[in-house]
Each structure stands twice: as C-alpha cells, then as structure tokens.
C-alpha cells in the first residue's frame, strides 16, 4: 500500500510515477501474532517446559533443607538456600559401609575415563583412516562385522568377556574395564572417522603417495592436522558415553570401592537403609550429570553434529 509518509519524502520528480502505483506495493505487512505463530511458539514453549522441568527440580531440591522439602512444593524455589546437601553428597553420602561420598566415585570414573577415551579415539581414528584409504582384502568384512556387533545387546557378550578378562588376569581391574570401553566404543567412533576420512578428496591421498609418504606419514602429517573437528566430536561422544555408563561399571568392577560414579550414585539413592534425604540425592544426581552437561552446553553445535554424524549412518 502506498504510504503517505514515504511518498512525502520521495523526490518531487518521482511523485507522478509513484502515484500511478495503486494497490499493494512493496513488502507485504507481516503479522507477528498470526495464528500459526501462536500455535508454533505455544507448543514449543509447553514442550520446552517438560524438558526443562527435571533439571530445574534437581537444582531447587538440592538447595533446600529437608524440613522445607517435607512441607513444601517440589517446584517451589528454595526459601532458604543451603549448600549442605551438596557438601554431604560429595563427602559423606554412604554406599553400604563406605561413607566418604560421591567424590570416590567421581575419581574412579575419572580414572576410567581418561585412558578409555584416549585409547578408543586413537584406535578408532587409525581404524577409520585405514578403512577409508588403505583398504585391503577383507577390511570391509571386518568393518561390517564390527558394525553388526554394535547392534547386538551387550548382555549377549558380557559373560564371554568376563571369561576372557579373567583368563588375561584383568577381571575386576581398571585395565579390564578400560579395554571393555574401548571395544564397545569402537563401532560408532570407527564409523565416524571412516566417514570423515572418506569425505577427504582421494587426490590428496594420491598426491601424498606421489610425494613418497607412507601409511603413518600420511596419517600424522596430512590427515591428523585437518581432522581436528572430528576428533572433538569423537571426544564428546566417548566422554559422555563412558561417563554415563552403568552396565560395564557394575559388571566389570570387583569391589564397591572401585565403582564408577553412576553405580555409586544408584547405590546411594536407591539404598533401602536410613531416612531418604531427597536434597542430598538430588545434589548427588546433579553432580553425576554435571560432567556431560558441562560438555553438552560448552560444545554446542559440535555435540549435535556428533550425534547426527554418528547416528544417521549408524
């Protein structure tokens, strides 16, 4: 529509032309509160509430005292903020006879995490590189077998692995658990690296071979420097995956002193002895979720890219 204000500012010479343009003219006015927009944003907002609620509940519950929890509303913000539950969860919460808190589990998880992540990313990156650039007779067969293995329920393979580790004298040891994590992290990460390296132009690889570089020289000097993003993606997948593991932790650790954080958390919260301290439980739960949450919110788009890259083809 011809707007009077705009017309007044245009030069006199153009006015006759502008005056000829009757009816709709220029951009169509946008209705900010259209019906479809209200439906879209309304739905998203309500659903977002459902997703955000548990995190909120965890936080407010962990900051309340037990008396307030017993009389109050689970969704109400704390009247009196206390960090006592956090301190107790970290230092004093009991699992069975041990009462030195979740800190023990945290450090156990940490000790499991570091070697598992380094080893599995290292192996998977070399696997992916070999599978995409140095194929040999049968390499695809082994890869297919590995990928099929990713779909087999872990329970099917658990006991034979117990026997293998026992025979190797590693059952119940940190090394044993690390090896299990490396093995079960291999399919997804190998796939990730294979797809990434396969997307690198083959000519680059050919050029390097004409330049006289071999298997390891091409890997370390050409491929590694250009694959930093995919390493970050693999790191994110492995750190969250291994940190969140429960099944292997409970199966392959021999004594409660060695339990990873998730196992210890479950034992603390679901123990039948004593009075339930919901604030301590929630502080402990939040503490356990903190590592993956920090990684998730810090990595942003890379996390999304990681699961999309891993999952779409997996």
């Amino acid at each position: 529509m011809a707007d009077v204000g705009i017309l007044a500012t245009t030069k006199a010479a153009e006015q006759p032309v502008a005056a000829l343009l009757d009816g709709p003219r220029g951009p169509k006015p946008v209705r900010r509160f259209s019906r479809s927009n209200i439906i879209i944003y309304g739905t998203l907002f309500v659903v977002a509430l459902y997703y955000a609620l548990p995190l909120y509940v965890m936080i407010v519950t962990s900051l309340k005292g037990m008396p307030e929890i017993r009389v109050g509303n689970i969704f109400a913000p704390p009247l009196e903020v206390t960090f006592q539950p956090w301190v107790k969860a970290w230092q004093e919460a009991c699992t069975g006879i041990n009462c030195d808190g979740l800190s023990r589990g945290f450090w156990n998880s940490f000790q499991i995490l570091i070697p598992s992540v380094i080893l599995s990313v290292a192996i998977a990156s070399v696997n992916g590189y070999a599978l995409s650039m140095w194929k040999f007779r049968g390499s695809e067969v082994f890869f297919t077998l590995l990928m099929i293995g990713a779909f087999i329920p872990y329970q099917v393979m658990l006991y034979p692995i117990v026997i293998m580790l026992r025979e190797a004298g590693l059952y119940g040891s940190l090394t044993g658990l690390v090896l299990v994590h490396v093995a079960f992290g291999m399919p997804i990460n190998t796939l990730l690296f294979r797809n990434y390296f396969a997307s690198i132009p083959e000519e680059l690889f050919k050029a390097a071979r004409v330049d006289g570089a071999g298997f390891w020289a091409i890997f370390f000097r050409i491929m590694l420097p250009m694959s930093l993003p995919i390493f970050v993606v693999a790191l994110i997948i492995q750190v969250t995956g291994i940190w969140n593991d429960f099944l292997f932790g409970v199966t392959f650790t021999s004594s409660p002193e060695r339990y990873p954080m998730t196992v210890q958390l479950n034992n603390i919260v679901n123990s039948v002895q004593g009075v339930k301290e919901y604030n301590v439980n929630m502080a402990a739960t939040l503490l356990t979720g903190l590592v993956p949450l920090v990684i998730y919110f810090a990595s942003g788009k890379l996390f999304v890219r990681g699961i999309a890259a891993g999952a779409v083809k997996g």
């Binding site: 132009p201 000519e203 680059l204 050029a207 330049d211 250009m226």
Partner: peptide, 28 residues
Amino acid sequence: PSERGIGMVFQSYALYPQMTVEGNLTFG
C-alpha cells in the same frame, strides 16, 4: 609412486590444506 620419477597434478589441486605453499612444494 614416489620411486617412479614422476610428478603429478590433480584436478582438485590436492594441496595439503594445513601446510604453507612452501610446505606443499617441499613435502615430497
């Protein structure tokens, strides 16, 4: 390939992206 006394130029250039031009020239 490197022992054959050949040099090769590719369609997609195939330059090593993280090396300088000099690094690319001297890698071989």
